[in-house]
């Protein structure tokens, strides 16, 4: 008998996500996928899963799950969340083997992070819809019945022969993001005044409480259009910084629509989109202009880091208060 995860409690924003739904943007189907793709990818790599294996994305509302029927090896991490196994605190990221009856619980840390991830060895086994297991709740496709997880859901894993070593996962990629968020200008940067562009890259912007998987609104100095703000619709990539008429930017995230009709000042570099996603409402963000080449190099650097073996602490260390204190104090 194979093990499964039973959801004991879940907030409204916990969804199954894989690497994303590709090939259907031309029909208006958004890509979805994880908000912090780097955290998601670290867990799948650590479990020797396929790169696009489905995992649970957990919002600040948190989740509690129980292992049922047979042991399960799971990996968790991202966003500096607090993780507990049957009441005992774990590190912020790690791999554990859960025995039937054991619980795993995630809740947001006190200072940063919106999203954390829980992956199972083999990946969560739900049907693919248009080639992907990602949940797109607004359109009710993917995941479990196209909806967010709720108490009572049972999640089985696809088969896996991997025997990943358990323990804490230590990587700077899962630490609190520092520094500014890189942005490639365009494709409609010429719809804004020079002053507006300068403002965007020199002033701090605050993440608004209007934020979800579709997009994050920013509050801060108004971005002035040089002319009109209606454009004939064109394509939207992940991370597009769209500026509607009122001049407050909206950064389009994993569930963004495929096309749209507002000018886009720039696009958040893929290397930094996960870090951006982890900023909470009320937190300040600064943006830094970079070239396409620089954004590409930054992305290749992230992949190079992902290819390096993760440093792992032992099981004892995972449960040891010293290490936990050390890991958490750096981030929480």
């Amino acid at each position: 008998m194979s093990g499964r995860l039973r959801v004991l409690s879940a907030g409204p924003g916990e969804t199954i996500q894989d690497a994303g739904r590709y090939g259907y943007l031309r029909y208006g189907v958004v890509a979805s996928g994880p908000m912090d793709w780097i955290a998601y990818e670290i867990l799948n790599r650590a479990l020797e899963n396929p790169r696009d294996a489905a995992a649970i994305e957990i919002s600040r509302a948190g989740i509690a799950v129980a292992c049922e029927a047979a042991p399960l090896v799971v990996a968790f991490g991202g966003g500096g969340f607090i993780w507990e196994r049957s009441g005992a605190r774990l590190s912020t990221a790690g791999i554990v083997r859960l025995e039937p009856g054991e619980h795993l619980r995630a809740r947001a840390g006190s200072s940063w992070g919106n999203w954390t991830y829980l992956a199972i060895a083999g990946g969560i086994d739900v049907p693919r819809v248009l080639g992907s297991r990602s949940t797109y709740a607004r359109f009710a496709i993917g995941g479990i019945e196209g909806r967010a997880l709720r108490a009572g859901d049972a999640l089985a894993a696809c088969a896996s022969d991997a025997q990943p070593q358990t323990g804490a996962l230590l990587t700077p990629l899962l630490e609190r993001p520092k520094g500014s968020i890189r942005v490639v200008l365009g494709p409609q940067d010429d719809y804004f005044t020079d002053e507006a562009r300068a403002t965007f890259f020199t002033q701090a912007y605050t993440i608004s409480t209007r934020f979800d998987r579709m997009g994050y609104w920013l509050e801060g100095p108004r971005i002035t259009h040089s002319g009109g703000f209606d454009i004939v619709s064109d394509g939207i990539p992940l991370g597009a910084i769209q500026v509607p008429g009122a001049g407050q930017p909206l950064v389009l995230m994993a569930d963004h629509q495929a096309t749209g009709g507002y000018p886009k000042l720039g696009t958040v570099a893929r290397a930094d989109i996960g870090a951006f996603a982890q900023h909470r409402p009320g937190e300040n963000v600064r943006f830094e202009a970079c070239t396409v080449d620089a954004a590409r190099r930054a992305l290749l650097d992230v992949y190079a880091s992902l290819e390096r073996p993760l440093s792992r602490a032992s099981d004892e260390a995972l449960a040891s208060s010293n290490l936990i204190g050390g890991v958490i104090s750096a981030t929480d």
């Binding site: 943007l25 031309r26 619709s233 396409v292 080449d293 590409r296 992949y303």
Partner: peptide
């Protein structure tokens, strides 16, 4: 090239920069 998105006036080409430079 991952996918293309035709619109009223433009074609957006989504690509994987690991395999293909701008």
């Amino acid at each position: 090239v991952i996918e293309t998105v035709p619109t009223y006036r433009s074609l957006m080409v989504h690509y994987d920069p690991r395999q293909l430079g701008r």
